[in-house]
Computed example of a mutant assay.
Amino acid sequence: MENITYNSLTLQLQGLKVTEFSVYPAFAFILLSYIVIILFNVGIVVLVVLDKNLHTPMYLLFCNLPINDILGNSIMLPRLLSDILRPPSERLISYYECVVQAFTAHMFGTTCHTILIIMAFDRYVAICNPLRYNSIMSNRMVIKLTVWAWGVSFVMVGILLGLTIRLNRCRTLIANPFCDNATLFKLSCENVFINNVYGLTFTVVLFSASIGSVVLTYTKITVICLTSNNKSLNSKALKTCSTHLSVYLVMFLSGTVVIILHRFPQFSDYRKLCSVLFHIVPSSLNPIIYGVQSKEIRQSPLKWFKSKKVLS
């Protein structure tokens, strides 16, 4: 008869399935990715803070993305790096640390969507109501949108994890490289119908709001551009909207692959790998996409170095 331990405070992480020969290449790849994520995203935040020319609603709202990327990956990737070098039997994590990790992982994914929603609203106002842009997108509005993006995510994820924490546990194995809500409530032998219903509703509402806001705003922007003979407006719309849309598509496709693979248990190893890449790929590409597309961000370091050179 199988031994069952109820409400154990020590859990075992399954981790990534890596062979003896791929341990160090995998460790090097994730470590390099983490360094790139931290350097690039911290660099973007520092540029926006120091350069007064970047103190515009678009860049202030965008700053939420690198901050989210730094927080989300700093909780997950260092732990993943240490687990890769350990044998599976030693990949242990406390229940409370696991809950914090799961909360952070879901906050990361949810906040990606809510931040891109408010950025879509900013692009809509800038293109469709340029004369009223400064009055609508005031400092107060930027603060309200930022609080909304983080507040909605906090409440939705808080309820998600709250429903899971209430359950008694009879298992100890986390079948994932890191803790998340699904693997946590699967530790329970109780009825998890409410968790499944809320989790599905959570996903549908989030994706519907995210996709709906992007489709609606970009449809209206497209109509404005097609009916306008203003080449300057069309060029501005194409430049700023293509950047936002590229970031959104990278995030959306990465997350969708993970959700789809959850439905196919036979591809669990691919799902684990994709769940890690969901953190790494968008977080690495976001600052690069904005840095390449944005003339202001590209010129900001040059102006800083030139000013230092003149002073010296």
Rank of each mutant, 00 (worst) to 15 (best):
P57F: 00
Y218E: 14
P66T: 03
L65D: 03
G158R: 03
I165A: 06
Q299W: 05
R132D: 13
L200Y: 09
W304P: 02
L47H: 01
V100T: 09
S89A: 12
S242Q: 08
I211N: 01
I118F: 07
I38K: 01
G72M: 05
N139G: 13
T240I: 14
L249R: 02
L54N: 05
I260G: 04
F21V: 14
N139Y: 04
S284F: 04
S135G: 08
I136Y: 06
Q293F: 12
L277T: 07
I260D: 01
Y34D: 00
P88H: 04
L50W: 05
F267K: 07
S268W: 12
N7M: 12
F121V: 15
S188F: 10
R86P: 07
V46L: 11
N176W: 07
V205R: 01
I260N: 03
G109K: 00
N230S: 11
T222N: 14
D51Y: 01
R298W: 05
Y6M: 15
F29S: 09
C128T: 07
Y270K: 08
H244I: 15
C112I: 14
V125A: 06
P265W: 12
Y59H: 13
E97V: 12
A149E: 04
F185I: 06
M141Q: 05
S284H: 03
F108E: 03
L50G: 09
L238Y: 05
E20K: 09
V214T: 10
F154W: 11
F40M: 11
N195W: 07
V48W: 00
N139R: 06
S135V: 12
R140H: 09
V292E: 00
C128L: 06
L77C: 06
L65C: 12
T5C: 12
C128V: 15
L50H: 10
E20H: 11
K17L: 14
V99N: 02
W150Q: 06
S213K: 02
I67V: 15
L32N: 07
Q266P: 04
L245V: 15
I115E: 02
L160Q: 01
F29I: 15
V214R: 03
N196M: 12
L200N: 06
N139S: 12
